[in-house]
Design a protein around this nucleic acid. Sequence first.
DNA 1: CCGATCATGTAAGTGGTTACATGATTAT
DNA 2: ATAATCATGTAACCACTTACATGATCGG
Lengths: 187, 187
Amino acid sequence: MSLPYMLLGLLDGHPMSGYDLNKAFNTTVQHFWTTEQSQIYRALHKLEADGWLTVETVIQQDSPNKKLYHITAAGRDALHQWLATPLPEEPAREAWIGQLFFGHLTSNEVVISVLESYVAQLRQRLAALEALQATVPGDMPLEAIPRQYQFQFLTLDYGLELHRFELQWALDAIERIRQFPRDSTNE
Amino acid sequence: MSLPYMLLGLLDGHPMSGYDLNKAFNTTVQHFWTTEQSQIYRALHKLEADGWLTVETVIQQDSPNKKLYHITAAGRDALHQWLATPLPEEPAREAWIGQLFFGHLTSNEVVISVLESYVAQLRQRLAALEALQATVPGDMPLEAIPRQYQFQFLTLDYGLELHRFELQWALDAIERIRQFPRDSTNE
DNA sequence: CCGATCATGTAAGTGGTTACATGATTAT
DNA sequence: ATAATCATGTAACCACTTACATGATCGG
C-alpha cells in the first residue's frame, strides 16, 4: 500500500535508479520502511505503467546501463494526496507481546531470558539510531537548518525516544516478573 | 509465522471452535494480534494436519454443529519451544513516519492536520485500553492474583504506556512543526 | 420481518520474501 | 583468487485480506 509513495517521496527532487533506491532503503529510511530489492523493481514497473514515473535509460561504459526514474506531475499529485490523507489504523501484530501474554504457560525464567534477548536487540537498534544522530551537525542554529532536514530529524527523534521507552519498559517488566509467583508445573 | 502459536496459546487449557477463537481475537488478544476469520479456519486445518491439534465434533440441536479443537502433546511442545525462542527482528513498516519524513514536500499545516488525526486515533485506542483496565479488580493484593492474569496485566500495561508515549510524542511534534520554517512553494 | 448470533468454509487477489539468474568492473 | 559494487530482473511461495456462500435459531 505505502511502498509506491515511499518511492515517489524518494524520487521527488532527484531521479534515481532501482539500485539507488534500494540503497536508500538500506540507509536513510531504513528505520521506518524496509523492502526487498525484488519488490522495488516490480513497484517501479507498475508506477511507470500508471504514469507516475518516466524512465530515462543511461548508457554507461564502466558499469551496466541503468534506468533513472523521474517523477511525473501525476506522480507528484498522487504523493501530495497521500501526504494529506490520514492512514487507516493498521492491524496489531506484535508477536513478542504474545509471548508475554502466554508467559504463564512457561517459567518466569524462560520469559525473562526471552525478554533479555529483546533488550539486547533494542540496545543495538538504539545504538544505531544514536550513531545516525551523531552525524547531525549540532552547532547549527535551528532556524538555519533546511526544512527537509527538520522533518528528517523529527522522525529520527521518534525512533530514539520510542526505543528508549521500549527499553525502559522491558527492563521494568523483567523486574516485575521476578516478583511473579513461580509456576508449580515447572519442568 | 506467529498465528499458529497464538491459536495454540489460546487453546492451551480449554478447547475452542474456530468461531470461539475468532471472538477471542476480537476481544482478549486484539491489542497485539488480529486476524481474519477465514485465516483462522485455514490455520486450524493445517495445525490439525500437522498433529498439533485434534478435532472433536460436537453435534448441537439449537445451533449448527461445531468442531472443538484440542491441543496435543506435540502442539504443547511446539508452543513451549516458541515461548522460549527470541523472535527475529521484524522489518520496519511504519507509513505514518514516512508521511512525516516527507513532510517537507507539503505545508506544515497539512502535516499537522494528518498528525492530529493520528492523535485522535491514539486517544480512542488509549480509551479502549483504559476501559479494559477498569474491568480489572483493583482491590486484590498482588500476590493473590493468579499467575496467568499477572502476565495478561503486564501486556495491558505495555499497551497503555506505549499509547501514552505515542500520544505525548505526537502532541510535542505538532508544537515543534509549528516552529518549522514555512514552505515557500505553498499551493 | 429483520438483524444478530452461531457456525463453517472457499476463492481470488495483494503485498511481501526467498531464491534464482546474469555479468562486468574494481579493490584487496 | 575473491569479494564487493554496480545493475536488472523473474519465479515460486507465503501470509493476509476481501468477498462470497450457506443456513438455522432467537430476540425485538
